[in-house]
Computed example of a mutant assay.
Amino acid sequence: MSIPATKPLQTKGRGARTNASGRYEPVAHEAFDDGWTPEDEAPEPLRTTLTPEHARTIIAKNTSPDVGFDRSINPYKGCEHGCIYCYARPSHAWMGLSPGLDFESRIFFKPEGARLLEQELSARKYVCKRIHIGGNTDPYQPVERELKSTRGILEVMQRFNQPFSIITKSNLITRDIDILGPMGREGLATAFVSITTLDRGLARAMEPRASTPQRRLDAVKALADAGVPVGVGFAPVIPGLNDHEMEAVLEAAAKAGAQTAMYVTLRLPLEIKDLFREWLADVRPDRAARVMSLIRQTRGGKDYDADWAQRMKGSGPVAQLISTRFKAAIKRYGLDQERHVLDVTKFRVPADARAQLELF
């Protein structure tokens, strides 16, 4: 039985306000503020826990017609950045965890990711195609500084000349410019940096542990200067909250060296709609009703419409206006270049990798 909260709990440095049980659990639990907080002991700080995941494979396949890649790698599950709108949140329910605070604080990593990737790329039936890194959660978690799970995967990519694209909200990507730069110049790598706002206050509330907007712009410049084809993702566009910044974000990214751009209109599937509503009512109570009204206007009057044909961009006059503005802006700022096509002809299996594989 789920007990309704009288007031969402607030956890410093986190995006979600609640930690309700996942949708697959037979019994739902949810903490709430009963109004007696001043009389209670202060709760323990919510700390991030790391759990190794011993996966059998590392390359995931998808057949979604509105996704621009059919294979991807996610070095982590869960994301400490805590973006309240993150479309990956519902995936934590598959593990019996909450898409709320659990998603931000219970992170899974793949310690054998690099070895698994080498094994899969060495398979005789492997056919080289672009691999996208970070299609679900950000490959540059704060803990990546120590674990270097993503770094290990990039090192394998470089050894095999395996083309890849990567997307992040973290300036930590600049650590790996020694790999991204040479591969980018050889037509083997592209990068996207997601920038949703230039307002540090909004970014801190909406994406509490991601790099600041300026640090992300710095990453765009560093990548571009190193010869990496880099784009900017204005995603998600939240009508009534950050959509007015579209042109400013695209202009700043273009000045930093971005060559292309993309956008996605806010999606609120499954548990995300309740998490976003709670956050919005807490952080922007003056405009919460207006924002939700505009969101529904992009989704046929619903909070979300999963129709493949329009789930990324939305439909209706509000969505059309966003699309029109985006097309005008990328043309104005020179971000309407064709996407960089990666070179699959340079792929090779190193001799030492083939010899190692034959031992098993």
Rank of each mutant, 00 (worst) to 15 (best):
residue 2 S to C: 04
residue 4 P to E: 10
residue 6 T to L: 15
residue 10 Q to N: 13
residue 12 K to E: 14
residue 14 R to D: 00
residue 14 R to P: 03
residue 17 R to L: 15
residue 18 T to Q: 11
residue 20 A to E: 14
residue 21 S to A: 13
residue 24 Y to C: 03
residue 25 E to I: 06
residue 26 P to H: 04
residue 37 T to W: 09
residue 37 T to F: 09
residue 40 D to E: 12
residue 47 R to Q: 12
residue 51 T to H: 13
residue 56 R to L: 12
residue 60 A to N: 10
residue 60 A to E: 10
residue 63 T to D: 14
residue 63 T to K: 14
residue 65 P to A: 10
residue 66 D to G: 12
residue 66 D to N: 15
residue 70 D to P: 04
residue 70 D to I: 11
residue 75 P to N: 10
residue 77 K to E: 15
residue 82 G to R: 05
residue 83 C to K: 01
residue 84 I to N: 00
residue 85 Y to S: 06
residue 86 C to Q: 04
residue 91 S to A: 13
residue 92 H to M: 15
residue 93 A to R: 05
residue 94 W to L: 15
residue 96 G to M: 08
residue 96 G to C: 09
residue 98 S to D: 08
residue 99 P to I: 06
residue 105 S to A: 15
residue 106 R to V: 11
residue 107 I to L: 15
residue 107 I to E: 08
residue 109 F to L: 05
residue 112 E to A: 12
residue 114 A to G: 06
residue 118 E to W: 12
residue 121 L to D: 10
residue 125 K to S: 14
residue 126 Y to P: 03
residue 127 V to F: 07
residue 129 K to W: 07
residue 131 I to C: 09
residue 131 I to A: 03
residue 133 I to L: 08
residue 135 G to V: 02
residue 136 N to M: 13
residue 138 D to M: 02
residue 141 Q to Y: 04
residue 143 V to T: 13
residue 143 V to G: 02
residue 147 L to G: 02
residue 154 L to A: 03
residue 159 R to H: 08
residue 165 S to A: 14
residue 168 T to P: 01
residue 170 S to I: 01
residue 172 L to E: 05
residue 176 D to N: 02
residue 177 I to H: 02
residue 181 G to Y: 06
residue 186 E to V: 00
residue 191 A to V: 03
residue 196 T to F: 03
residue 200 R to C: 11
residue 201 G to H: 15
residue 202 L to C: 01
residue 204 R to Y: 12
residue 205 A to E: 14
residue 206 M to Q: 10
residue 208 P to G: 08
residue 209 R to M: 10
residue 209 R to Y: 08
residue 209 R to H: 06
residue 213 P to N: 08
residue 214 Q to F: 07
residue 215 R to T: 12
residue 226 A to V: 10
residue 231 G to M: 00
residue 232 V to A: 02
residue 233 G to E: 02
residue 234 F to V: 08
residue 234 F to N: 09
residue 237 V to M: 01
residue 237 V to L: 01
residue 239 P to L: 06
residue 241 L to F: 07
residue 242 N to S: 10
residue 242 N to T: 10
residue 244 H to V: 07
residue 251 E to M: 09
residue 252 A to C: 04
residue 253 A to K: 00
residue 256 A to D: 00
residue 257 G to I: 03
residue 259 Q to D: 07
residue 260 T to Q: 05
residue 261 A to K: 02
residue 263 Y to S: 06
residue 267 R to N: 06
residue 267 R to V: 00
residue 268 L to A: 01
residue 269 P to Q: 00
residue 272 I to Q: 09
residue 274 D to C: 03
residue 275 L to M: 11
residue 275 L to D: 03
residue 275 L to T: 01
residue 278 E to M: 01
residue 278 E to L: 04
residue 284 R to Y: 15
residue 291 V to R: 00
residue 292 M to P: 02
residue 292 M to H: 06
residue 293 S to L: 09
residue 294 L to W: 06
residue 296 R to V: 03
residue 300 G to F: 04
residue 301 G to R: 07
residue 303 D to C: 03
residue 304 Y to W: 15
residue 305 D to K: 02
residue 307 D to Q: 11
residue 311 R to F: 11
residue 312 M to W: 10
residue 317 P to R: 07
residue 320 Q to F: 11
residue 320 Q to V: 13
residue 322 I to N: 05
residue 323 S to R: 14
residue 323 S to D: 15
residue 328 A to L: 09
residue 328 A to D: 07
residue 332 R to L: 05
residue 333 Y to S: 05
residue 335 L to H: 01
residue 338 E to I: 01
residue 339 R to P: 01
residue 349 V to M: 04
residue 349 V to L: 03
residue 350 P to H: 05
residue 351 A to N: 10
residue 352 D to A: 12
residue 359 L to M: 13
residue 359 L to W: 13
